[in-house]
Amino acid sequence: MSHFSFTQRSGCSEILELLDISNLLVLNDTVARKTNAWTKHEAISVILSHSQSAEELLKRRKVTRESILKYLTEHGMAVSTSSSKQQLIDDALLYWIQPLATSSHLLPFQLSAETARSVTPLVHSSSPTQTTSSPGTFPCNRRVCNTCRFTSSLDFIQGPNQSFQVQQRFTCTSFNLVYCIRCFRCQLLYIGETKRRLGDRFAQHLRSVRTNQPGVPVAQHFNSPSHSESDLSVLGLLHCHDYVQRKCEEQQLILHLGSLHPSGMNIDMSNF
């Protein structure tokens, strides 16, 4: 099962186009031994379908340093010609995150595969990981957990723009995920991501609310007139595999749901 965002898949396709056909066919045989390809287009399609992630694909020996460098240069990225292949891979992965911050016109079909599975009413298939018959976010029931009472078992979120169907199960101890903070009183949303446990990240938000930390969107909202921490709820949206996927999914969901200020609590694409 491949895990590419739309921008990652598009970018990797362009890089593969820069390889000669002999390297592509060898790469095709390596990645998908039982799937034959006879043309460049077929080979690229098969390789993308059978690769686990953009990073895993770019690290393949047949994907040359020169092809990644040429791709980044053609896209106007300021990269050093002496950069190592790993540095160029890191640059590409970060570049594929950046366009999302300015794509407020992002169309539904441009959502990554993980997000698209949970967008309603577009796609209704279940996620391949962490899916159970009871999706939603539930208390971990640890003896000392300040997050349990704030968890929400909702499996459907309606934003100002569009909706999102939660298809995975989370608890306070889930980690490496995209999450949502929701206001009971006015239904405003905040979308965030964390590699830590959900409970640990939420505890940080809760402290900011209780201390009314200046310049922090969530703290400001729940300290506004008629609001308090009792209006807080938190739920997981998507399990992720790494930092790059978390940032891609977070930014796409901010745009898809419409949680940017003033319709939501996200001030920008990288706020607290």
Rank of each mutant, 00 (worst) to 15 (best):
M1N: 10
S2C: 07
G11R: 01
S13Q: 10
E14I: 09
D20C: 10
D20R: 09
I21M: 08
N23H: 10
L24Q: 03
V31L: 12
T35D: 11
N36R: 14
K40Y: 03
A43L: 01
V46F: 02
I47Q: 06
S51D: 01
S51G: 00
Q52A: 13
S53C: 03
L57D: 07
R65P: 04
I68V: 15
I68L: 00
K70I: 10
Y71D: 02
H75I: 05
G76E: 06
M77L: 14
V79T: 08
S83M: 10
Q87M: 11
I89L: 06
I89N: 06
Y95H: 12
I97C: 10
I97R: 12
L107R: 11
L107G: 01
P108G: 09
F109C: 09
F109Y: 14
Q110A: 07
L111K: 06
S112G: 15
A113G: 06
T115H: 02
T115F: 05
S125E: 08
S126N: 05
S133A: 12
P135Q: 08
C140S: 14
N141L: 13
C145L: 00
T147V: 09
C148K: 05
S152G: 01
S152I: 00
I157G: 01
P160N: 02
Q162I: 00
F164W: 12
V166I: 15
T173L: 14
F175M: 05
N176W: 10
F184Q: 14
Q187T: 13
L188I: 05
I191E: 04
E193C: 00
E193T: 04
R196C: 09
G199D: 07
G199F: 05
D200Q: 14
A203S: 15
G215D: 08
Q220C: 09
H221N: 07
S226E: 11
S233I: 03
S233D: 06
S233A: 13
G236F: 11
C240V: 11
H241P: 00
D242V: 01
V244Q: 12
Q245G: 09
Q245F: 05
Q251W: 04
Q251I: 12
P262A: 03
S270Y: 13
S270V: 09
